[in-house]
């Protein structure tokens, strides 16, 4: 009961703060829109992928990108909490570190899911994406799994660092390879084998693959079952790492 209330408290805080930081919500939606409108239209003017409009093709990839960057960036807030004594206030509470970690992860995932739902609405209204109830739910499940993994990575980095600049540096080292090697912006079918090797060991690729298949109704390159298996395994692994990192975090 105590731990559950604590979990709720941490989630409640993240959610409230998210709702009050309008600029954060707006920025998190505007950036993917720029990718879709400018990059998608720009490159789409010259190329088409197997009859698919390029903008439509990258739409699932951009959803993934939003989840990836947003979730990783979430780890920054732990450093901000440490700069004031808010983190201490939380760590001193008679709660297990695992609870604190999950509270953060669920809070971050809630924020991220809201952003993605907004992008889905915009996608269906302005970008000609046809969602079904099933594709929305299945996509959100895949996105949630990815968010949990990436939030865990972000929180792990955040738990080990004191400087915002350092966090920015390390997180971009992590996020850019994960993004560019995920097939978010290009099909992975005809890649040279060295590049394909990188893409296939990147867990984010499986999220892109699953989303593209479910949203656009194209066959999945890796297969949907392997996609979800990888996402679940990756999430479990990263939760393990994150829990460990929170356990050893100094007050």
């Amino acid at each position: 009961m105590g731990e559950l209330n604590g979990l709720y408290a941490l989630w409640y805080r993240e959610f409230k703060v998210f709702l009050r930081e309008r600029s954060r919500v707006v920025a998190s939606v505007v950036q993917p829109l720029m990718w879709l409108v400018i990059f998608g239209t720009g490159l789409g003017a010259s190329i088409a992928l197997g009859g698919e409009n390029y903008q439509t093709f990258i739409y699932p990839g951009i959803l993934t990108m939003t989840s990836l960057f947003g979730s990783l960036f979430f780890g920054l807030y732990i450093i901000m909490d440490r700069r004031v004594d808010f983190l201490k206030e939380v760590l001193v509470a008679p709660l297990s570190r695992t609870t604190i970690f999950f509270g953060k992860v669920l809070g971050g995932a809630t924020d991220g899911i809201i952003e993605v739902v907004i992008l889905m609405l915009l996608g269906s209204l302005f970008f000609g994406i046809h969602f079904t109830v099933l594709s929305v739910i299945a996509s959100l499940v895949a996105i949630f799994l990815l968010m949990v993994s990436i939030l865990s990575i972000g929180l792990t980095i955040g738990s080990m660092m004191n400087s915002l600049e350092g966090f920015g540096l390390i997180s971009s080292f992590v996020s850019f390879p994960l993004f560019f090697l995920s097939g978010a912006l290009f099909p992975i079918k005809n890649l040279p084998s060295w590049l394909y090797a990188f893409v296939s060991v990147n867990p984010v690729s499986y999220a892109v693959d699953a989303l593209r298949s479910m949203i656009l109704g194209v066959p999945a390159a890796f297969g949907l079952v392997p996609d979800f298996a990888v996402l679940v395994a990756f999430a479990l692994l990263m939760i393990g790492v994150g829990t460990w990192a929170f356990g050893r975090m100094r007050i």
Binding site: R13, V84, D85
Partner: peptide
């Protein structure tokens, strides 16, 4: 604590509420 340890974006009462939940 020595340094401020409440969340600026929450109200006073919300900060209390968080604490009450965390302390069971």
């Amino acid at each position: 604590f020595q340094d401020p340890s409440s969340d600026d974006l929450l109200t006073g009462r919300e900060n209390l509420y968080l604490h009450a939940l965390m302390y069971g």
